[in-house]
Amino acid sequence: MKLPGIEVLAAVATAVSPRGAYINDQVQRAHAKAVKAGAIGHPPSTGLVLRRLRSLEKRGLIECVGGPDGYYGFEWRITDAGRAELARRAS
């Protein structure tokens, strides 16, 4: 199963806290839901989620606002451009 950046952006928006561990949890939940609905594939690795986050950062959709914090990882903030992208995709 592929992991599009927009799914990671949505996970940033819905995570309990905008830290890497919570974002990864949202991605894993979305994967489990997709598999239950018939999708196939391994769950995305933590490294893949971080690569997608960095890719979103390069595109200006999110920004890294805090360094690694032990288990919880980096802290991320959605930019105005990221909110606009989520709104565009939702409609």
Rank of each mutant, 00 (worst) to 15 (best):
M1F: 14
I6K: 11
E7K: 10
E7S: 11
L9T: 02
L9M: 01
L9A: 02
A10V: 04
V12F: 00
V12I: 14
V12R: 02
T14I: 05
A15D: 01
A15Y: 04
V16L: 12
R19W: 03
A21H: 04
I23F: 00
N24D: 06
N24Q: 15
N24F: 15
Q26A: 10
Q26F: 06
Q28Y: 09
R29E: 07
R29N: 04
A30Q: 10
H31Y: 13
A32D: 14
K33I: 08
A34Q: 09
A37S: 12
G38P: 09
I40R: 10
I40E: 10
G41M: 07
G41N: 13
P43K: 09
S45F: 06
T46Y: 13
T46M: 10
T46W: 12
V49D: 01
R51M: 09
R51N: 08
R54S: 12
R54T: 12
S55R: 08
S55N: 08
K58P: 03
I62M: 07
I62C: 06
E63V: 15
G66T: 07
P68I: 05
D69K: 13
G70T: 14
Y71C: 09
Y71E: 14
Y72K: 06
Y72I: 06
F74Q: 15
E75S: 15
E75T: 15
E75L: 03
E75N: 11
R77C: 11
R77F: 01
D80R: 10
D80L: 12
A81C: 02
A81H: 05
R83Q: 13
R83C: 04
R83K: 13
A84F: 01
L86E: 02
L86I: 00
A87M: 11
R88Y: 08
R88N: 07
A90C: 01
S91C: 02
